[in-house]
């Protein structure tokens, strides 16, 4: 069974149609990249899958592990294994990163009917994950993302992903605002999470990220539709030729 099956998906924001019929199937273990010009609807697609309020699906279906995903609240989608890594992770003053991680992890466990982790179990798990990502204990004690650099925020997103162990990770412009060193660290973190059960949808404007997180498939999204699909070599072709032919076709 496909992990996620998107059929003829149309979606609007503030009454304006952004997605105009998307078809996409992702099998377990696959990494798909969505590329395309600004305004093509790339981020809209990830937000619709994650269930962001204000993104209205007007037509089509999204089936996730055989279930109607669109009928689920965002928190249920998260607990079912969908993880959206945000382009702009939110800062939450007054809530320590560990407190937040524990709350999120226990929400997932509760959803699955498992007991909450006690403080020791949680600490052991979080230590293990942070060490792998090179995140210091001081960051964990600090309020979530407050005063973090762009790279630290994205690394924090990867930490959350590794704690919550999703089936489908949506990386929304994860490379934006990162220098090359930060990008490498984040990419390594993502690559460590690749497995035959876990799938990725990588949304990016630039090919650069795909040098580090190598996709199985690349799709070009233009004017709310997938204009072309191919293997990873398509990304290189786009890098050299740009999106002109797609924006032209859309106009």
């Amino acid at each position: 069974m496909a992990l996620i099956e998107i059929r003829n998906l149309h979606a609007s924001v503030d009454g304006k149609e952004i997605l105009k019929g998307i078809d996409l199937v992702i099998e377990p273990g696959q990494a798909h990249a969505i590329m395309g010009p600004n305004g093509a609807g790339k981020s809209t697609l990830s937000n619709v899958i994650a269930g962001r309020p204000g993104y209205e699906v007007t037509q089509g279906s999204v089936t996730y592990l055989g279930k109607d995903l669109l009928a689920l609240e965002p928190e249920a989608r998260a607990c079912e294994g969908i993880f959206l890594a945000f382009q702009y992770p939110v800062e939450i003053p007054g809530v320590a990163t560990t407190t937040f991680l524990k709350t999120a992890l226990n929400a997932h466990r509760k959803y699955r009917g498992e007991g909450e982790l006690d403080a020791m179990q949680f600490l052991k798990l979080v230590r293990e994950k942070t060490r792998a990502l090179g995140i210091g204990d001081d960051k964990l004690r600090r309020p979530l993302n407050v005063g973090f650099s762009g790279g630290e925020k994205k690394r924090n997103e990867v930490l959350q992903m590794s704690m919550l162990e999703p089936r489908l990770a949506l990386l929304d412009e994860t490379d934006s605002g990162l220098d090359i060193d930060a990008l490498k660290v984040v990419a390594e973190g993502v690559n460590a999470l690749r497995s035959p059960e876990r799938s990725f949808l990588i949304i990016t404007h630039y090919q650069r990220l795909l040098d580090y997180i190598v996709p199985d498939f690349v799709h070009v999204l233009a004017d709310g539709r997938i204009a072309r699909s191919g293997g990873k070599e398509l990304a290189l072709e786009l890098e050299s030729r740009g999106y002109a032919e797609f924006t032209g076709a859309a106009a």
């Binding site: 994650a50 269930g51 962001r52 309020p53 609240e73 965002p74 928190e75 989608r77 998260a78 607990c79 993880f83 959206l84 945000f86 992770p89 939110v90 939450i92 003053p93 007054g94 809530v95 937040f100 709350t103 999120a104 929400a107 997932h108 959803y111 309020p143 959350q160 919550l164």
Partner: peptide, 24 residues
């Protein structure tokens, strides 16, 4: 939305944000 996308139900998310608001 960020908190809900991490699995928190709306009331837990609201509670966390209220606590954060009053914290400083």
């Amino acid at each position: 939305f960020f908190l809900r996308a991490r699995g928190l139900d709306p009331e837990t998310a609201r509670g966390l944000l209220i606590e954060a608001f009053l914290d400083d």
